[in-house]
Each structure stands twice: as structure tokens, then as C-alpha cells.
Design a protein around this nucleic acid. Sequence first.
DNA 1: CTGAAAGCGCTTACAG
DNA 2: CTGAAAGCGCTTACAG
Lengths: 334, 334
Amino acid sequence: MKALSIKDIAIKANVSITTVSFIINGKAKEKSISEAVIEKVEKIIKESGYKPNQIARSLRTGNSNIIGLIVEDISNSFFAKIARLIEDKAYKRGYKIIYSSTENSVEKAQELINMFKTRKVDAYIISPIKGIEEDIRMLLSDDKPVILFDRNLADVNVNYVGANHFNASYQSIESFVEQGKKNIALVTTDIDVEQITERFDGYKKALLDSGLAYSEELVLKIHFNQDEETTINQIKNLFNNQKIDAVLFATNYLAISGLKVLKQIKKEIGSEFSVIAYDDHEAFELHTPGISTIQQPLEDIAETVIKLLLNQLSSKTKLPNQQVIIPAKLIIRD
Amino acid sequence: MKALSIKDIAIKANVSITTVSFIINGKAKEKSISEAVIEKVEKIIKESGYKPNQIARSLRTGNSNIIGLIVEDISNSFFAKIARLIEDKAYKRGYKIIYSSTENSVEKAQELINMFKTRKVDAYIISPIKGIEEDIRMLLSDDKPVILFDRNLADVNVNYVGANHFNASYQSIESFVEQGKKNIALVTTDIDVEQITERFDGYKKALLDSGLAYSEELVLKIHFNQDEETTINQIKNLFNNQKIDAVLFATNYLAISGLKVLKQIKKEIGSEFSVIAYDDHEAFELHTPGISTIQQPLEDIAETVIKLLLNQLSSKTKLPNQQVIIPAKLIIRD
DNA sequence: CTGAAAGCGCTTACAG
DNA sequence: CTGAAAGCGCTTACAG
């Protein structure tokens, strides 16, 4: 059973496909199609269940009503939740989302951008990595709306929405210092993206401003793509060799590994040893004791991203790029 | 800057677009294009960075190399992980994935199927809900490969991949009974899908087979779309009013809510009170004590789904439908 | 060994 | 008030 085409509808209604097309696209009034014809055609469309072929429409108009979303890893709960929120909001405006994960590979990210390009997506939402600056510039020169989120690319002039990672990290360390902590560790990753370096910078600056020394031995940079066992051993090492009394984990999955270590080595979290994790996770609230976290305002981020995007999509002229920095919240639990 | 078309390449190479098309599609040999021409054209394609317009290709061929994935909620970690695994495997075979969440709404599910249809996706992977049987039959009658996973639809003859929910649930109750538990509760949801009813049936059957009475008072059915506060109050109620000594949570998010309740009412998990959760979650391993869980073999499920799908996609003839039931594993933690 | 032409299903400028 | 026709960028049956 072949799908109906606009031609079938036109024949049934005994009008031209032009007329049908105008009616489908809500241009009937503007093109002064008579009420009688509009009604007749709409009735036939409804009864037959005809749905316009979006592929043909895309080929003709050059746009697709699809937004491409590129993240590091869709199975990471931060991205999964953002994706879901963005999807909801886009859906209400008639846009669909295609997502894909880069796994922090420049090559894969470039492939994805290319694939989205050949599929004529209307706009891009990207949590970028270094190395794709040129690809993003090409999208911009094609006049495609692009919104970066979560991580910025310093070298590209483009819309960006993200949390204030530096401040959040700074405040965490401050709170440790207020509790009288002296040997504050940082467990972070070695990926070279702005949001991670900002967390590092916040850590360092807060230490120095508080009169504490910055020591490389208190900082552990975990390699991004390694298996969890290696990570756990490295963290175990850090905790065993040092007189650490507080630790900031720069991502929630590192914190999860860290908590596993603490469980294994039977080190208790409490007044002797404090923990803060960047990005919340259901495990943290449930943990005994509760784990303090830095929470990024997911809803605000998603809302801002989609608002900027829809503005651009509906604007005839190129809008100026915006950088929206949203504060993150430190939630103290015990 | 307009994108290059096949025509541009043909002009540059001084051949017809037919020839270019054959070369792009690897049919050069078969169509006996001369080596010299092949080389010349390939060189121009590479240098110019030409990428065929997939939209045009789809319109012409009727397929898109896109697989539609429809789940209940992409931000749920079970679906997010499955989605990621499926995406990886599909990607390697040249297929892309579009996903979308139904939020357990029949209407939204139907809309999504329609949208995927108008976008000419080549195949569907669906975690279905009751009420879309007819829509799925229509896809099948269009000869589109469809794989259901996680939940089956009894009334439709279609491929299905899922865990053995009945057995897993049955075994959990058995393990409670072996520990001498007498008042075993079940916290489940009220959505009417097969994988949930199977879990319920396994619970009931195991109780009866063990000579324990089945009591409705020990079963709490949580309404799917309600806010967590209400859920927490209902669970609190259940736990307070009963001499319950063990509880099976039919989903991981219900277990998370349940654990929050236990924390609030300061009820300890241990020999007096045992817990098993359906579907693992990072919070469960970290919890003190560790929470026993039923783990579905995500990797196996994803692998089987994509294998069935690719088989169908590459087969000229319609393959018989398969129902693949994969055992789930009970992991006891303490 | 290679090309001209039809056609996939739409939209839209133009004509009447 | 409505329609014929061009064209979006491909693929492929047919012809030579």
C-alpha cells in the first residue's frame, strides 16, 4: 500500500496540487482560495489520513524542522535530562530532535556535524569539544543557528549557555575553608574543555585567596576514556597517600567512583572528611550521609537554549550572539 | 555559499551526473566505468568536499538510513543506556538514530510514529504501550521492520526482545522466602504494560508456590505520572501500617523513592527488612548497605535488537518474527 | 564505456 | 479565484 501524495488528494478533490499545497500550508486565505474549496480539500485530507512527505518538503524548502543535538554521551544523566527537556520544548514548537554522542572524539563530532548537514537540520545545539572550531564556523557561515551549551569554545563567536563553573567551584572550596579544612583535594578529568578548566581555576583561586597553598599532589586528573577500575585505583592512591580532609569531584561520575573507593577503604564522610560533587545524582541524596553537590539549573539551561534557538529560527535577520551564564547552586547535605 | 551538488561535480569532471552517481554509490565497476574516469571523479569529490544530499537521496530511494527509536522517557537511565548502545551499533553500520519519548501517552506515541513515517525512517525500535497496536500493524503492513523491546504487546505478531520479567520477579521472592521472610510487599506502578504485569505475576506466583498468602494490602500500585512527593507519602504509608519484612520494587525509580522513605523514617535495611530493586542504578551499589537488584542485560538486549533489525533491513524477503527472551540476573548485595 | 531523461513529492513564482 | 510548470538533488531504466 503506497502512501498518498498531494497529487492523489488533488485528483480526488478535483483541484490542482497548487491549491492543495496552499491549503495544507495555511496560505489558503492569503491566496484567496474560496471557502468551499478549502472545506472540500480539508475534508478529503482528514478522511484519507494524508500526511505530507516531509522529505520532499525538505528537499524543496531546504529546511527540515529538525534540530541536531550533539552531546558527549547521551547516557550520562546530565545530558539525558537536558536532552529530554529540550526535546519537550522543541516538540511543542513543531521541531524534532536528532541526537548523537561524540564520546569526546573530534573525528566523531565532525562526522556528526557533516551528517546533520547533509540531512539539512535547521539548527544545532552542541556541547562542544576543542578541535571542532572550524566546523562550527562553517555552520555559522551557512547561516545556521548554533547554540553551544555546557562548554564554551573561546575562539568562536557563537551563542553559549552554561553554568558559572568558576564561581561554583570557588564557592565549594570556600565552604570547605569555612569548615576549617586545610588539605583540599580535587579529582577532575584531563579533557581540555572550558567547563572543566574553569572548575579547576575556581579551585585554585579559592585556595590562594584563602591563604592555602596550591599543591599539585592534591589534584588528580583522570583520563577520560579509561575503565572504572583504573580510576578507582588512582583515587584510592590519592586518598591513601595524603592527609586530605576534603575533596571536590569535578564530575558526578568521578564522585561515584570516589564514593566506591571510600566504601572500600572504609573511610567515613563526616567532620574529618568532607565531599562535594559537581552535578547532582540520585545516588548523592540517598547516600548516608548525604553528599553535598553543585547543581546546575537544568531547566533554566534547557529553557534558555531553546529560547535562543527559536528566536534565531524565526528571525529574518541574523541576531547578535549571546553568552548566557547561569549561576549553579551549592547544596549542602549531611 | 551554496552546497555543491552532483551536477557541479559532473561539470567539473566533464562527465554526466549519471557517471558521478554510479561512482558515488560504488557501482562504477558493475557499470564498467573506466578507471581513468573513476579516479578523476573521486579526486574532484575529495578535493571539493562534496557530500551527497541525503534528503534528495531519500526522496528518490524511499529510505533514509535512519532508525526511529521510541521509548517512554529518554532521561530514564535504563532507556538512556539502551539508546546509547543501540546508537553505537547502528552507527557502525551506517544508520543514524532519531529518538523520542512517549511519556506513556498513547497520543504522543502515535504522533511520533506518524512523524517518523513522514520522515521515511527505515525501521522502528519501540518500547510500546497499550493502545498503539493498530499503528504498529500499519507499519508492518508497510513492510517496515519493527522491533519491540522491554515490553511486548500480546495482540501483535511482531519481533520482541526483552528480559524474563516473570522469572526475575519470581526468583527475588524466592530469595526472600529462603531468608525466612513472611510479609513481602511489592511496590509497582499502575501502567498496564506486559513487563510490569509479568513482574506482578511472578511475585504472586512465588508467594503462592511458597505457601504464603497473597494479600492486596502488601501491594502498592503507584500512579505513573504523579509527583514524587505523593509517591513518597504512599510508600511511607505502606511501610508504617504493615509488619512488612521485605519489599520488591518493580522499577528503579520507585526503589529510589522507597529508599528516601526508609531514610526519612529511619528504618534500617538488614536482616529485619530486605529490599530488592528491579533494574540496577548507581545509587544501589553505593548505598549503605548495598541494595540487591535485578539487572537486565542491557548489552545483550541492545545487541539482539540491532541484530534482528539489521537482518531484516538487509533481507529481501520478510523474515519470520522472533521473540527473544533474555534472562535477568539477581544480584545480591549487602 | 557513458549519457539524456524521467521521476521521487513537494513549493512557489508566474500567468491568467 | 485557480492552475501549469519549473525545480530542489538525487537514482536508475533505457538507449546507444
